[in-house]
Amino acid sequence: MKSIKTDKEYKDYVKDKQPKQTLLKNCINAFIWGGSICIFGQLLFDMSKKHLELNEKDAATVQIIILIFIGAFLTSVGIYDKIGKHAGAGSIVPITGFANSIVAPAMEYKKEGYVMGVGAKMFSLAGPVLVYGTSASVIVGIIYYFFK
């Protein structure tokens, strides 16, 4: 082309040709969904403390397990991806999104078998979270040991 020659010229040229990502609307949706999922988590926590008479630590465990179950269940019936379309980060960041990131590839790769498909691909999205989270916590632990 005569008018555009380099990569940079093209990138500058297309910048204002891109559709807007509707950032404000996305943020509002993320805020409402994210906040609501957390409220629901808090309700679970308070209820298991009150009705199951659990201590703080066990109540937190029950809360996380139930949230993960709900995330996994909604993913398996095909609802979570529809929520994600509106909620964006609001449904990715809560722990239910972590469950979604494990269940989605597990379902998708089931056709490649239960070992090489489900087993191997289950952590294709969640694996990095465990790798970096665990490594960071070990490093923090060692530093804490020497400097506490």
Binding site: Q21, T22, G84, G97, V103, A104, M107
Partner: peptide, 13 residues
Amino acid sequence: RSPLESGVQRKMT
């Protein structure tokens, strides 16, 4: 891209 069920938002493009 990503698995069908993953709740990722598609970009406008």
